[in-house]
Amino acid sequence: MITLNQKIILVIFPIILSLVTLFHFVIILFHVMPLNPLSNKFSHIIDGYTYPLFVQNWHLFAPEPISSNRIIQMKTQTNGKNSEWIDITTPLIDGNHKNYFSPYNRISRLSSGAIQQLFEEDEITLKYEEKTKKIEKKIEEKEQFKIGKEIIFRYASSYANFQYPNNDIEMVKIRIIRKDSIPFSERSKLRKNNFNKFKDWESIYEFNWEPKIEISPIL
């Protein structure tokens, strides 16, 4: 049998839970909405509450969708001889297109993620720099760029170990190239055949030669 006290708890408990749920989702809403004066003012509370359990963002393709391709190319040096530039991003993406139910499905995302690590910063810093027209630090001095660089070299070394397992590659050189999408108004240019051609690609960053890192092959 349920006693009177227990009954009172059974009434109060759902009320408390309702309030907790309400509070929780109000904070989540402020966390996922675009930056506004309120969420800016209470950002420390909102961030403190949502990190790490409830961190979320639902705007990967919005408001502006990703619309350019950025890929990594690598040169290798073996016994003092340099190779040509080889594309170390697209083969993994092609692998994914051939079979979604394969390790390619996730591995093919590494490349774009590492590039993003290099160049993208959090919204607030970007807006601040834009407004003040003052760039605080050169990009190479920024911590996130340094980490991104290390990851890209690890990625390239791992790719090299997979592609040339028996080669004694000493050094690798990396560059990031990019191709913007063709605007809708010029879509007639978009022919099936020249979609993947490299002619419209531009190099956006080139690193110096670095020694290959000891790491297991990517595949």
Binding site: F61, A62, P65, I66, S67, S68, N69, T90, I93, S108, R109, S112, S181, I182, F184, R187, L190, F195, N196
Partner: peptide, 10 residues
């Protein structure tokens, strides 16, 4: 938007 997203290989 879909037109632009579809131009991204990934």
């Amino acid at each position: 938007a879909i037109y632009y997203i579809l131009q991204v290989d990934e």
